[in-house]
Amino acid sequence: MTSPSPTRVCFQLQVHPELLDEYIERHSPVWPDMLAEIAASGRRNYSLFLAEGGLLIGYYEVDDDAAAQEYLAASPVAARWEAEMGRFFVGLAGRPDQAATPLTEVFNLHDQLVASATGSDDESDDAS
């Protein structure tokens, strides 16, 4: 029996441009107890990408995103981290980990390769 695919979550935030250097410093490295809380929440393969001008894109995988969010919302460590991080973001109401704008996934190579191998969504069927 195969396990269900993890949920892929991508989000965006906007970092104040004048705080970019400090934001990067704060993540080099992240507090060890915060890293442990992220892992304990079930999030994995978590990355942040920062574009020029402060556009921040985050990505992680999780089996149960609602449970991970609940875990982190109840974590005193995450509450302290998010309270310190909140000032870095433009137009944010609430904790950054709970107020980020989720993005819609429109393509995933693995999923399409699996679908192609099983014959679903076969483009050649449409051509006839």
Rank of each mutant, 00 (worst) to 15 (best):
T101V: 06
H27W: 05
S116K: 15
R87D: 06
D97R: 14
L113H: 08
H110F: 03
G119I: 05
G91K: 08
D126H: 13
V62P: 00
G53F: 06
P6D: 02
G86L: 02
L72M: 06
L20W: 03
D125H: 15
G91Q: 11
C10N: 14
S124R: 14
Y46F: 06
E70Y: 09
L72H: 04
R26D: 14
A39L: 01
L113C: 11
L109H: 10
Q12E: 11
L19H: 06
P76L: 03
E84C: 06
H27Y: 06
V77S: 04
R80W: 09
D126N: 15
A68R: 11
D111Y: 06
S3F: 07
P4L: 03
T2K: 15
L56S: 03
M1W: 15
A93L: 06
H16R: 09
D121V: 09
P32R: 13
L72W: 01
E105S: 13
A73D: 01
E84Y: 10
S120E: 13
S3G: 00
G54Y: 06
V90C: 02
I24K: 02
S116N: 14
M34S: 07
P96L: 02
L35E: 14
Y46L: 00
F89T: 00
V9D: 05
E37F: 01
D121I: 10
L19S: 05
A68G: 07
D33C: 02
E61S: 08
D122V: 12
Y46M: 01
V30D: 10
Y71C: 02
V9T: 13
E37V: 01
